[in-house]
Design a binder for these strands. Structure first.
Lengths: 139, 139
DNA sequence: GATAGTAATAAGAATGATTCTAATTTGATG
DNA sequence: CATCAAATTAGAATCATTCTTATTACTATC
């Protein structure tokens, strides 16, 4: 029993995630990202959720993405200075950017590997976030 | 015996590196980066080399940096969407961004570690470039 | 060493992703 | 339903970077 009947055939999204109230706009952004594994840009999210929310604004998409990132519901991914991309995979992982096709693939670490074990960090370092980016091609 | 006497007391820079003709502007950009380990931005490079070349333009600094990067003489380093920074350290290494002070530290890998060994890459992947970024604080 | 052709530089305009501003709407609460 | 805070909207502003065009500097050749 849902509180409204609008979301049949769509992924149910709770009213709140990690303390963030999931407004209609945030739901659409999040739902789209969950079903999309191509790491879309803010603009791509905007184009797509306009289908469900024709009056949504690009600023709102940026606001939603920022809120989702800050509440650790999605991750922001940057390649050089290209437009930021967004990723619903919260597991620790890197990104491989295939230069031939332009596609982006998540890269997992081999089991048992702890990133901080292999890095020569200064003592007393508190790591909040790690980003690994690879560029190349699938031969 | 140099071809001119202008560079006394400065690091001698060859006329060509990796096939790139080292013009006066490229020399100044490169010389500054070599002596500076703070990973300066294009604008910081610009401000500084103006002392030696008062008529240099910001566009030229960007051109020089791009040429140096493309000829693998320096590396471009990006943190999120902040202005790009430039680094003369060509060894494979990552960057630790200390949020408290805003400073950036090079991070080496522990001896014997090969990055591709610990990543679960798709088969037949040719890696051209790896970037590792850490954010946190020195407690 | 003058000349022609190419590369590099300079100055300022243009671009484009992102952020900001101000006004409106929505939602939660009493 | 009145109130207050939060979210959304539309459009303007920002700012690192790139582009354009004109000028200048090199290089190679005569």
């Amino acid at each position: 029993m849902t509180t409204n009947g609008l979301q049949h055939r769509q992924t149910e999204i709770p009213e709140e995630i990690n303390g963030l109230r999931m407004t209609r706009q945030r739901q659409e952004v999040y739902r789209f990202l969950m079903g999309e594994r191509t790491h879309p840009t803010a603009n791509e999210v905007f184009m797509r959720i306009k289908e469900a929310l024709p009056h949504v604004s690009l600023a709102t998409v940026y606001n939603c993405l920022e809120a989702l990132v800050q509440h650790k519901i999605i991750r922001q991914v940057n390649f050089d200075r290209e437009p930021s991309r967004y990723c619903p995979n919260l597991d620790e992982h890197g990104h491989f950017h295939d230069e031939t096709t332009g596609t982006i693939h998540d890269v997992k670490f081999k089991p048992g590997i702890n990133l901080t074990d292999i890095l020569d960090l200064p003592p007393n370092t508190v790591i909040k976030d790690i980003e690994i980016t690879l560029r190349g091609q699938l031969a």
